[in-house]
Design a protein around this nucleic acid. Structure first.
Length: 899
RNA sequence: GGGCGGGUAGCUCAGUUGGUUAGAGCAACUGGUUUACACCCAGUAGGUCGCAGGUUCGAGUCCUGUCUCGCCCACCA
């Protein structure tokens, strides 16, 4: 028996425990079935669940649960990411509060702290995910610093090194002065900043009294200037090319060079060249053999070379440089200026271009990675992201993979002690290290976190350890089926995984399409939208505009939240979060609960453990139009649902079921079937409810599981029950003499229209919808027969005892519908004028529609080109409108007589 | 500067290859609770589909232009 009220919390805890205890989500290598696999985008161990996770993981869960219903052997591999910079910053901050610094305590002690932090907090997000109901295979849980995974990362490094793809070099990199590490280009975010453009005079050495004016936003770097550059074709400066000028701070003679990289129309057309602190300047410096003088240290403070600015913090130094120039008469002017400045994504401070020794990766298999997507071997949804992906691959720059951090995978490179580290002769690159470790020192740096995530889909299945791969079903599950992630990590993660898969699994110079197909990490990538608040802002911790998903779970249930998210997430669109939708999700669950409660109020003993058993209880003789219509609608609903799911249109799929259940089943079928509680009708209910539970299960797993058992649909978990396709459903329903029921549907729709019109009449005249008012109807032939057949239902639905057939029009308020005319038997005297006005308005509307219809049907081009179905539709509509017009006119004539 | 996406009811959004009179939820308004559900039921109102052209028998849907909001990439010092 069903509990009276729906309380999501308890049943969600109960079922999640039972599912996991039963090992329901374990991956199984079953050659008899087709494999289905998803690897989770591993959340950061520093993360807490936000709405983006909730959406993303709901979608994955829907996919994987549906795959199981389709008899696929499904694996959803969960895991977490060690989150290099993010966790290091977090732990450092905590230590700082306790007055400790990582440099003082040293590497090992710091790592101990970091491990302890992760031990304590790292699984929070996984526990949160469980509350959402995700059906991950927790036995396959992987962490990017697990020993086997860490080994895989190092093997990947060594292999890439051996392939000549990884090299070390002195390069200009993005330096974060707070984290004190290099960053990849992708980790730098450009932001418009209000700054000042300083116009500075550089006196010409050879022509004292003549000046070049240079515009710069960074006067603090002047001590690092080693040239001034102008465009070779800039006629203003021809006379100066080859001469020298005085560097205005830390006065020194520097050359004036010509370089095409200089823009004539920016500023004054003269550029100060600081090779050590700007990428463009560095390149100019290379072309002109200029010295790179560093004036800023790794912490962002001016070093001794900066002379008068030495020791100052970089932004303070900028102000001081401005003052210094002004005081010395070297500043022409300063103006407010907005420019774009690169910020460190994690530490949220402006990055410093800095020259340093770093490890770089030349991306492998770029061509194949492009082909994988452009040839549709990997399918992006929405497809347009392919363009973004391909554009990025066309403009690749080598990836700086070394980080000056401690938390992460240490670079497996050793240097012979007391030798030149820049000379590869003195390197040892291997996973296990040199055999004589006492003579070597390991590289201090770790790898970019994203380097380790790039091999995720392989690593979670044991790559490259052949035994582990065998055990984990690598060849069975790889390539995985679907990847669900956000478009914001298309470069960080998606593209890199594709290249790594192709590189490590593909053999030979180039890969054929068939080889690409076998080595890609996944076949489909579904990009979710980004969850935004009602003002359109990205939900983030710093803005504090993201509700805690767990609060929503408490308030609306996990099922409610999941359904709400599904309903508000159109494919490929950003999601404007609305708590109302989540509330709607819960309302749906409550309604479902109550529908079962209704069904349970009519006990029946029939066997419900299979579709066939339910159908056996249906007596074909007793099936009426309504029963057949709802069953028919079920089939068409399942078809539409299948189409939506195959297209990954989750919101549409949810909407389709929503409408079927609420509008067609509850508001109509349950209401009309209340007059007929026969075994047959109850079996129809059971059938529909059963299929509804199965269809809904991937979206709202908890309540469907609960109701499945409450209503004795079987002993198995609902998730283990195979879902009949629309085609199978169609076949099974043939047992009850079931064929196309479009005609029946039309009949039911016509009755529905009649009821709605009658209800509207009552409402229009201020009558309570439950008031027993007599109704009269006029109808001929078929229509009359149809109405007579449904008379009992009409009475029940309209809460009216009297519905009578009349042969002639009455002087009563009326309404015309497809099945004829309805009159309402008002007891009070009729306001003839008001009624006339109402009908006249209705008449005008109908006349207008008739005009439109006739126009269309008199158009020969329309008749010649439009499909028959459309033309017939127009004809039927016209006929119906003509009938309405006649009725309205007749009634109006009678009303006129009354006056 | 280059690319992508959005602009449909007061709000949030659907609207499949062009085809009957453009839909839903929320909000509003009216009426309703003995018989699954007030997290409910019945009904009402609300839209020149951003704007301007074009193609077509027919355009929210296709084309061109334009305005506007948002995102991504590039980075001019």
């Amino acid at each position: 028996m069903v509990d009276l009220t729906y309380v999501p919390g308890d049943l969600e805890k109960k079922w999640y425990a039972q599912w996991t205890n039963a090992g329901l989500f374990h991956k199984k290598i079953d050659p008899k079935r087709t494999a289905y696999a998803i690897v989770i985008p591993p959340p950061n161990v520093t993360g807490i669940l936000h709405m983006g996770h909730a959406l993303n993981n709901t979608l994955q869960d829907v996919l994987v649960r549906r795959a199981r219903q389709k008899n696929r052997s499904a694996a959803w591999i969960p895991g977490t990411d060690h989150a290099g910079i993010s966790l290091q910053i977090k732990v450092e901050k905590e230590l700082l509060k306790a007055g400790k610094s990582r440099r003082e305590m040293g590497r090992e002690a710091f790592l101990e702290h970091a491990r302890a932090w992760r031990e304590k907090n790292g699984n929070t997000i996984l526990e949160q995910l469980k509350r959402l109901g995700v059906s991950c295979d927790w036995f396959s849980l992987k962490y990017t610093l697990d020993p086997d995974y860490a080994r895989a990362v190092q093997i990947a490094f060594v292999k890439l090194y051996q392939q000549g793809r990884i090299y070390k070099g002195l390069r200009m990199v993005n330096w974060c002065p707070v984290s004190q590490t290099a960053l990849s280009d992708e980790e730098v975010i450009m932001r418009p900043q209000a700054s000042t453009l300083y116009y500075v005079r550089y006196e010409i050495v050879e022509k004292p009294g003549e000046f070049l004016t240079v515009a710069t936003t960074r006067p603090e770097t002047i001590p690092g200037d080693t040239a001034v550059a102008v465009h070779p074709e800039d006629e203003r400066y021809q006379a100066y090319i080859g001469l020298h000028c005085w560097r205005p701070i830390e006065r020194k003679e520097i050359p004036i060079v010509a370089d095409a990289a200089v823009l004539k129309d920016f500023g004054t057309g003269a550029l100060k060249v600081t090779p050590a602190h700007d990428i463009v300047d560095f390149e100019i410096g290379q072309r002109h053999q200029l010295e790179a003088i560093s004036v800023i240290d790794p912490r962002g403070y001016m070093n001794a070379t900066a002379g008068v600015l030495a020791g100052l913090e970089r932004f303070e130094a900028r102000k001081r440089a401005g003052i210094y120039l002004k005081q010395n008469g070297l500043l022409v002017k300063e103006e407010a200026y907005e420019n774009n400045v690169g910020f460190s994504e994690r530490a949220n401070v402006p990055i410093e271009p800095r020259l340093s020794q770093q490890w770089f990766l030349k991306y492998p298999r770029v061509d194949e990675a492009k082909r994988a997507v452009s040839e549709g071997i990997i399918q992006f949804r929405p497809e347009r992201w392919a363009k973004t992906y391909l554009y990025w691959l066309d403009n690749l720059r080598d990836w700086c993979i070394s980080r000056q951090l401690w938390w992460g995978h240490r670079i497996p490179v050793w240097y012979r002690k007391h030798t030149d580290r820049d000379d590869p002769q003195n390197w040892h690159v291997s996973v296990d290290g040199p055999t004589d470790p006492e003579n070597w020192e390991q590289d201090e740096d770790v790898l970019d976190t994203w380097f380790s995530s790039a091999i995720w889909p392989m690593g979670v299945f044991g790559w490259p350890d052949t035994d582990a791969m065998q055990r984990n079903g690598f060849s069975y599950f790889y390539p995985t089926t679907d990847l669900v992630t956000g478009p914001d990590i298309i470069f960080f993660w998606v593209a890199r995984m594709i290249m790594m898969g192709l590189n490590f699994l593909g053999k030979g110079e180039t890969l054929s399409s068939e080889e690409i197909r076998k080595t890609i990490p996944f076949r489909n990538v579904y990009f979710t939208g980004i969850v935004r608040d009602h003002l359109g802002r990205k939900m983030s911790k710093s803005l504090g505009n993201s509700p805690d998903p767990l609060d929503l779970v408490d308030k609306y249930g996990a099922d409610g939240l999941r359904l709400g998210l599904l309903l508000m997430s159109p494919q490929g669109q950003d999601v404007l979060f609305s708590e109302e939708r989540v509330a709607l999700g819960k309302k749906f669950c409550t309604k479902l609960w109550n529908a079962f409660h209704f069904r349970q109020s009519h006990p029946s003993e029939g066997d419900r453990t299979s579709l066939e058993a339910i159908i056996d209880q249906i007596d074909v003789e007793q099936l009426e139009a309504d029963d057949r219509a709802i069953l028919w609608r079920l089939i068409t609903t399942v078809e539409a649902f299948e189409r939506a799911m195959e297209a990954y249109e989750f919101n549409r799929a949810a909407q389709i079921i929503y409408t079927f259940f609420w509008t067609h089943y509850c508001d109509w079928y349950i209401e009309i079937s209340k007059t007929r509680a026969s075994t047959t009708v109850l079996a129809v209910h059971d059938l529909i409810l059963r299929q509804l539970l199965l269809l809904l299960h991937p979206m709202i797993p908890f309540i469907t599981e609960e109701l499945w058992h409450q209503h004795a649909y079987g002993q198995q978990f609902i998730g283990e029950v195979l879902l009949e396709s629309s085609e199978e459903l169609r076949q099974i329903l043939k047992k009850i003499d079931f064929q196309n029921a479009d005609a029946l549907l039309a009949e039911v729709d016509a009755i529905h229209e009649w009821v709605v019109a009658a209800r509207a009449l009552k409402a229009q005249f201020g009558l309570s919808s439950t008031k027993d008012v007599p109704l009269y109807y006029q109808a001929e032939g078929e229509e009359r027969v149809t109405l007579e057949r449904h008379l009992d239902q009409l009475k029940a639905l309209l809460k009216t005892q009297n519905i009578k057939l009349v042969e002639r029009p009455l002087q009563l308020p009326m309404s015309t519908v497809g099945l004829g005319t309805i009159y309402i038997g008002l007891t009070e005297s009729l306001d003839v004028e008001a009624e006339k006005a109402r009908l006249t308005q209705a008449l005008a509307q109908v006349v207008k529609l008739i005009e439109l219809g006739e126009q269309k049907l008199h158009n020969e081009n329309f008749l010649a080109s439009a499909p028959e179905k459309v033309i017939q539709g127009a004809r039927d509509l016209l006929a119906e409108n003509f009938a309405k017009k006649t009725q309205l006119e007749e009634t109006l004539r009678r009303l006129a007589l009354v006056l």
